[in-house]
């Protein structure tokens, strides 16, 4: 299971899933409130750690990802907080009014703009306070409300280290850690996930003291983790289920760790669950070697992240005529 030394660290891309309810609410928002206004709309996506060994978790859009139609002033959706199965991630929606405008969107530029927000939050330290901004995403769409079909494309901007990080060792947490450490970490993670104030905080620090006691802390407690006798792991909620690859959120996390704390060797912890509880056999621990040159953080790194559709660079399309078209609904109700 472990990879040979010096291999490039690779990541499993974030995957999107859009609930039907999202398009229902978007349609009614467009018809009743937005009209032809196509200015970008803040939205909220939800994700959670992988909770089953056979399927990855997704960045999910639901009806509540959008602002409520009735709210008079605010066009910003309210983030739900404290739900362990729904960590809120900020995103932005560019919806166009025509299919031509959809194709004409400058995707490189849009991706770069979102990546710049992430980079800015890293440099200013905002990402340490509110780590959800590290997984910021972008959605472009064309909602054809005449045919009830929706064309859309997600991007999950990832800042690239240059040269890329190398992977020294990647193993299940249960093999990497001593039994007592794994048990203590498992308990600490379950408590973290149980507490309403931390359940939806997707990036965190783990310290393990010489007595094998693990503590899970917020990123802003970095200073408190500085003790030679402690092991420090950089943990994140990993949506990916593959046993040999960490998930996408690690990319921007490594950029943060390198830019903020200037570490050359990072032990990361891909936190995964089984049926809602910490699973150290599914969770991974690995070591990444970062070899970026001095002063790399003075310029913004390049970014990648448009989601592939069955391996191809094409948008996705969903038709909801069956559940939205009033004439069809009338026929099926007759």
């Amino acid at each position: 299971m472990s990879k040979k030394e010096g291999a490039l660290l690779q990541f499993s891309p974030m995957q999107s899933l859009v609930d039907e309810g999202f398009w229902h609410r978007f349609s009614s928002l467009k018809l009743n409130k937005l009209g032809i206004d196509d200015s970008p709309l803040p939205i909220i996506g939800f994700y959670a750690p992988c909770s089953h060994s056979q399927v990855s978790n997704h960045l999910t859009l639901l009806a509540e990802s959008l602002p409520s139609e009735s709210s008079d002033a605010s066009l910003v959706p309210e983030p739900s907080s404290g739900n362990r199965n729904k960590c809120s991630i900020p995103g932005i929606l560019y919806n166009t009014n025509t299919v031509e405008a959809f194709h004409a969107l400058d995707k490189m530029k849009l991706l770069k703009e979102e990546a710049a927000k992430i980079w800015n939050d890293i440099v200013t330290g905002k990402a340490v306070e509110d780590c959800s901004v590290l997984s910021r995403f972008l959605l472009i769409s064309f909602a054809d409300l005449k045919k009830w079909s929706f064309h859309y494309w997600f991007a999950f901007p990832a800042l690239m280290l240059d040269p890329p990080a190398a992977l020294v060792n990647l193993r299940p947490a249960s093999q990497w850690l001593r039994a007592a450490e794994a048990e203590s970490l498992s308990t600490a993670c379950n408590e973290w996930r149980k507490s309403k104030s931390t359940a939806d905080v997707p990036f965190f620090l783990v310290t393990i003291d010489p007595q094998s006691r693990a503590t899970v802390r917020l990123l802003k407690e970095w200073e408190a983790c500085q003790s030679d006798s402690h092991k420090v792991l950089f943990g994140f909620y990993d949506p990916c289920h593959f046993p040999n690859t960490p998930g996408w959120p690690l990319r921007n996390f490594l950029a943060l760790i390198s830019a903020k704390w200037n570490l050359k060797s990072v032990q990361f912890f891909c936190y995964r669950e089984n049926r809602g509880f910490a699973d150290m056999g599914l969770s991974l621990v690995g070591e990444a070697l970062i070899t970026v040159p001095e002063g790399w953080k003075n310029t913004m790194p390049n970014a990648v992240g448009w989601e592939l559709n069955k391996g191809r660079k094409v948008p996705r399309c969903i038709s909801l005529a069956q559940s939205m078209d009033p004439t069809r609904l009338a026929v099926s109700a007759a």
Binding site: Q10, F11, K107, D144, V314, P315
Partner: peptide
Amino acid sequence: EEDDIPDMAEFEETDNIVTDPSTYLVAHE
């Protein structure tokens, strides 16, 4: 489907997304 969804799936994007596969570092499923 009977709806004539515009044939977007055939529309292979090559114009304005440029990614160098060697730096993309995507693990293949």
